[in-house]
Amino acid sequence: MTLKHSDILTIGELAARTGVAVSALRYYEERGLVRSLRSAGRHRRFLRSDIRRVSFIRIAQSLGLTIEDVARAFASLPEGRTPTAADWRQISHEIRSVLDRKIAQLEQMRETLDGCIGCGCLSLKRCALYNPGDQAGKTGTGPRFALPDG
């Protein structure tokens, strides 16, 4: 594959185009979300298509997805070519299921929070309705009924 000069960006150019700090780009590279080429002087160079990848990372993070969620989605992307619209649709479909799970967790948390605030005690030790005898305290620390593993 022959690359034109216009297909290559410095790390600073990629940072400017995406609004992401250079340190974040290095972190994304470390996590395998983007890959750099190296110049003769060992400077990082990125493909223009990495603008889309980094932009997707920013969008995914704004939706509450983790770097691990993004890495799983990116695992299906082709190496060495710009992802197509079909590639992005597939990723979008995969991300939708992650978002659906997060929405369900948030809805459950909202309902639990409303009920807890409604009783007025705000104490899991004293709450006879949600936590008689402080049973939740035996399962771990923190807000046991609001945490996803609670």
Score class of each variant (00 low, 15 high):
residue 108 Q to R: 15
residue 68 E to W: 14
residue 24 A to K: 05
residue 75 A to Y: 03
residue 43 H to N: 13
residue 60 A to S: 07
residue 65 L to S: 07
residue 150 G to D: 02
residue 42 R to H: 10
residue 89 R to K: 13
residue 126 R to Y: 01
residue 108 Q to E: 14
residue 43 H to S: 07
residue 58 R to I: 05
residue 80 G to P: 08
residue 125 K to M: 11
residue 19 G to H: 05
residue 146 A to S: 06
residue 10 T to M: 06
residue 116 C to D: 11
residue 121 C to A: 06
residue 120 G to N: 04
residue 128 A to T: 14
residue 77 L to D: 00
residue 113 L to E: 04
residue 81 R to W: 04
residue 146 A to W: 00
residue 106 L to D: 07
residue 128 A to D: 15
residue 33 L to G: 00
residue 131 N to E: 05
residue 76 S to N: 15
residue 135 Q to V: 12
residue 94 E to I: 02
residue 97 S to T: 12
residue 111 E to N: 02
residue 119 C to Q: 13
residue 74 F to M: 01
residue 125 K to G: 12
residue 106 L to A: 12
residue 118 G to L: 08
residue 54 V to C: 02
residue 127 C to S: 14
residue 14 L to Q: 00
residue 57 I to V: 10
residue 11 I to D: 00
residue 122 L to V: 04
residue 42 R to G: 06
residue 38 R to D: 06
residue 1 M to G: 09
residue 21 A to E: 15
residue 57 I to P: 01
residue 82 T to F: 03
residue 17 R to A: 12
residue 102 K to T: 04
residue 108 Q to S: 14
residue 39 S to L: 11
residue 96 R to P: 05
residue 85 A to R: 13
residue 70 V to E: 05
residue 34 V to Y: 00
residue 86 A to E: 15
residue 104 A to K: 06
residue 61 Q to M: 11
residue 149 D to A: 09
residue 60 A to E: 02
residue 67 I to E: 04
residue 113 L to I: 08
residue 65 L to P: 05
residue 2 T to E: 15
residue 94 E to C: 02
residue 77 L to W: 01
residue 45 R to G: 00
residue 99 L to S: 01
residue 14 L to D: 01
residue 135 Q to L: 12
residue 44 R to G: 03
residue 100 D to W: 10
residue 69 D to L: 03
residue 100 D to F: 08
residue 24 A to P: 11
residue 49 S to E: 13
residue 9 L to T: 00
residue 48 R to A: 08
residue 40 A to H: 10
residue 111 E to I: 01
residue 94 E to T: 11
residue 89 R to V: 11
residue 37 L to H: 12
residue 60 A to M: 08
residue 79 E to L: 08
residue 142 G to T: 13
residue 95 I to D: 01
residue 46 F to K: 02
residue 61 Q to E: 08
residue 74 F to I: 01
residue 21 A to I: 11
residue 52 R to P: 14
residue 20 V to S: 01
residue 128 A to P: 14
residue 41 G to H: 06
residue 126 R to C: 13
residue 129 L to H: 15
residue 117 I to K: 05
residue 115 G to C: 10
residue 129 L to M: 10
residue 84 T to V: 10
residue 115 G to Q: 13
residue 76 S to P: 15
residue 111 E to K: 09
residue 31 R to M: 06
residue 95 I to M: 06
residue 43 H to Y: 09
residue 10 T to R: 02
residue 92 S to P: 12
residue 32 G to C: 10
residue 122 L to H: 12
